[in-house]
Design a protein around this nucleic acid. Structure first.
Lengths: 126, 126, 126, 126
DNA sequence: GTGGTCTAGACCACC
DNA sequence: GTGGTCTAGACCACG
């Protein structure tokens, strides 16, 4: 279900967070769906439970998932996007980094826009 | 000249690297321009010379700058972009992260494309 | 395990890099093998951890080793050699330097070729 | 006559030393030939006279050139190669470095030997 | 003057 | 436990 690479420089917990959010966007995970428990997930991914726990906490903080005591963890039903200036800033940083790097790789302005659109396409296929 | 935030979670040396690359793309720094010496820059930014040195070495590795022994450090004159599959992958990761995050912030597909174009615009103003 | 000479003019970190690469080629270190941690190695070699760290980072940049977060550093499993024009040029420089020097030492053309073959032999004994 | 690159990581004086020795081997410079004075050379190469001086001193130490007071500097006539264990060791280091690097670039044993022979060829063309 | 290397010692994020 | 970052301060080669 998730694809974790322990050799990546991206922290494990962040890989989990990002991929779960991606799957929610894609519709693979839907509101109300149950996530594996921390313990199950840690076995599935063969990583430390603390790491999974940290990922879940982060997702809960962002209101992407909800924990119901004694029942488990679920994709949020009533998720309401709200503008978060900080996140928005972060988002722009990523875009800028991509553009600067793209320029260095010899990409044209259109190349980069096309790439972005392709990525959006992929995420919305379903 | 550079805008360093010691409280950011992004390492200081990486902030330096990113900003210098950004200024090169923007044309603020031009091929052949001399950068402040490691010592000067460390005073300007009020950080340790070793940190500046690390940033310069990283930039040199990426061929963005060149150091001339005993003379100083300069923006590369004949930089030739070359396709680097890995860097390209990294770039896509950033874009994807931006898109996923954008969705979570309630941005539409067009919002994000518009944001990207705005960022490109800013970088190419000159 | 490694043989470091603090009096050599070759930087310590470079000695480490070169020797580890040599041991990988020789098969003494094999893909998946764990390297001593930075701290352990620094104690083994009686040098500063930062110096070991610098060596490891350089090796990682060259994809000779991989670090797994919180677990340690390992010889890369799936290293794929790729042609690198620059490295190749460097390599030729070393050969040329050896040839010129050899001539000055009174070695014949065959002497030098024999020496090279002997060195290759040594590296491939296992 | 000489081809100096101030941006190279190889020290200027070493570039001079290496190239002069190379030209002697190639026969471009012959025993008895006069070298430009330190001052002339420094102007030719547009570098600091001290740097040229350091190169000449090194060449003289290696008995590749001789200085005749008031007359100038000349390629040695009576150069007698003698085995110098230290130099020999250095030479082997270069060869080894080339071999290790070559392996990493995916070169076969024969590739490397062929490269060496090609380089010898070039040096002996005249 | 320049950058490169090294040490000692500290703090941090991640697992 | 792991490696990554940063500081302070030193020494060195090079030009």
């Amino acid at each position: 279900m998730l694809n974790i690479d322990p050799r990546s420089s991206k922290p494990l917990y962040e890989q989990i967070v990002d991929q779960i959010k991606e799957q929610i966007i894609k519709g693979i995970l839907r509101p109300g769906d149950k996530l594996p428990s921390v313990r199950e997930m840690s076995i599935l991914l063969m990583i430390n439970p603390n790491t999974v726990s940290k990922a879940y906490q982060e997702l809960e903080r962002e209101k992407a998932i909800e924990t119901v005591r004694g029942r488990g963890t679920f994709i949020s039903r009533n998720y309401q996007p709200k503008r978060d200036e900080e996140k928005l800033q972060e988002l722009k940083e990523w875009l800028k980094k991509a553009v600067v790097e793209g320029r260095y790789l010899g990409l044209s302005r259109d190349d980069i826009v096309a790439m972005l659109e392709e990525i959006i396409q992929e995420l919305e296929e379903r």
